[in-house]
């Protein structure tokens, strides 16, 4: 600072230098751009890894149902089938339960207990997959084997779905464990959606003499239908990629069976099990191609879910779960 002895007008200090400002801005931009770059990086790395298998098997890979590392013959169909079946089971169980819970939490529960209940759902979301797997192997699967599956076989055994020997570890057990794991996200996204339904909707229905349930059905659910569908699609995205818990309870056998009691295999669990054992280049490449299939499907499902949730008035939820 130059010494200005008797200058009444303050000496204007130098304006802030430009370069730190500009470089900070670029730094922030770089970090934000990393996100976009990461998507391409993931896709490219998987494609690079899968190149060998893509060249050799082409589109046949998707519907070829043999997985034989010894003969170097690979097809993804048993895994795609297993992934689809477990995800469908999971959605059939989790969507009604999750939406019902969300409705209870937003429309019915006494105000005082809402927050604690929401907290329980969030805690459920925090339980790691491997812990559900552990619990699944030692508690859920034996219970299903001795109770629910026996019961299902007795009463619904005429359906091909519930025939065949009961091992415990099975596609159905996998679907149930995945349902438990996607319940929190379906519940919390549905709850956000229901909360964004304007109160005017409810009041109008009450004013017409509707009962509590009629208000929910006519005013709330019909208004929130699209968002709830988005929540279900988001749950589907999670279900497809679920790995540890399902690997531990599905039985890990690469076969396509009509029975839900039969062991199966999913895309994510075959990768988890066999990746470190892949001895030949082609074997590893086939596993990478399974990963690529999984990636493409989950990205598509997630894009659909995001588009559905974003297009809602009020923004739905951009919240990362």
């Amino acid at each position: 600072m130059p010494a200005a002895p008797a200058a009444p007008a303050a000496v204007p200090s130098a304006p802030p230098r430009r370069w730190p400002d500009v470089s900070f801005r670029w730094l922030a931009l770089l970090a934000a751009a990393t996100i976009v770059a990461l998507i391409f990086l993931v896709g490219w790395e998987l494609y690079r890894g899968a190149h060998l298998a893509v060249m050799k098997f082409g589109v046949n890979f998707l519907h070829h149902s043999v997985w034989d590392p010894v003969a170097d013959d690979y097809g993804a169909w048993p895994f795609i089938f297993g992934t689809l079946v477990t995800s469908v089971i999971a959605l059939l169980l989790a969507v009604p339960l999750g939406v019902g819970t969300a409705l209870y939490l937003t429309e019915i529960a006494p105000l005082r207990i809402r927050q604690p209940l929401v907290m329980v759902v969030e805690m459920l979301a925090a339980v790691p997959s491997v812990i559900f797997g552990l619990w699944g192997v030692f508690v859920l699967v034996p219970w299903l084997r001795d109770n629910l599956f026996v019961w299902l076989k007795k009463w619904l055994g005429f359906l091909p779905l519930f025939q065949g020997p009961i091992y415990g570890v099975s596609v159905l057990a996998g679907g149930i464990i995945v349902a438990i794991m996607i319940l929190p996200i379906i519940t919390s996204v549905s709850r956000e959606i229901l909360r964004s339904v304007p109160n005017l909707q409810r009041e109008a229905a009450y004013a017409l003499g509707a009962t509590h349930w009629e208000v929910i059905r006519l005013a709330v659910l019909s208004y929130a239908r699209r968002g709830i569908f988005g929540a279900a699609v988001l749950g589907l995205g999670r279900a497809l990629g679920e790995t540890m818990a399902i690997t531990m309870v599905i039985g890990n056998r690469a076969e396509v069976s009509a029975s839900l009691f039969a062991p199966g295999y999913t895309l994510a669990s075959v990768i988890a099990n066999e990746f470190t054992e892949a001895t030949t280049d082609m074997y590893l490449s086939a596993l990478f191609e399974l990963g690529l299939v999984l990636l493409v499907v989950t990205i598509l499902v997630n894009v659909v879910a995001q588009l559905m949730l974003r297009s809602l008035a009020g923004g739905g939820t951009g919240k990362v779960q």
């Binding site: 790995t243 994510a268 999984l294 989950t298 779960q321």
Partner: peptide
């Protein structure tokens, strides 16, 4: 992009 990334299975 962030929301899509968040949906990518962790095994990938």
């Amino acid at each position: 992009a962030a929301d899509v990334l968040n949906g990518i299975p962790s095994i990938v």
